[in-house]
C-alpha cells in the first residue's frame, strides 16, 4: 500500500508549531498513521492537541474530511487521494 498525501488544516494560533503554515501535508497509509505522521513532522503540536494521558484535549476536535472522529465507527480507515484532516477548536472562548 503506497502512502497517501493527507492535507491537514490547523487553527491559526497553532501555525507557529508547523513552521508558520496552517495547512500542511503529511503522508500515511491510514488515518491514525496520518495523525502520527503529523506529530512526527511537527512535534510541538502534541502538547496542544493531546493531554499527558494521551487523550485528545477536551476542546479540540479532529475532523476526517467533514466528519468528527467521534462520529466514526472506527478511525482505522485507509487513506485515499484527496482526504483531509482538520483540527478545530471547540467553543469560542472569551
Amino acid at each position: 500500500m503506497a502512502p497517501i498525501a493527507l492535507s491537514v488544516t490547523l487553527p491559526g494560533i497553532l501555525a507557529t508549531c508547523a513552521g508558520g503554515e496552517n495547512t500542511v501535508t503529511v503522508e500515511a497509509e491510514t488515518l491514525p498513521g496520518g495523525v502520527e505522521a503529523l506529530l512526527q513532522a511537527y512535534p510541538l503540536l502534541k502538547v496542544h492537541l493531546f493531554k499527558d494521558d494521551g487523550k485528545l484535549r477536551e476542546h479540540v476536535m479532529l475532523l476526517y474530511n467533514d466528519q468528527s472522529f467521534d462520529w466514526l465507527e472506527s478511525t482505522d480507515i485507509p487513506l485515499k487521494e484527496g482526504d483531509r484532516l482538520t483540527v478545530l477548536q471547540l467553543v469560542s472562548g472569551g
Binding site: 510541538l44 502538547v47 496542544h48 492537541l49 493531554k51 476542546h59 477548536q89 471547540l90 467553543v91 472562548g93
Partner: peptide, 19 residues
Amino acid sequence: FVYGPTVQVSRDWGETWEQ
C-alpha cells in the same frame, strides 16, 4: 484554555519565539 501550557523563548527581544 484549549491548547495548554508551554514555555516559549525569544532571543531577539520578542520578535520571534520558540516553543
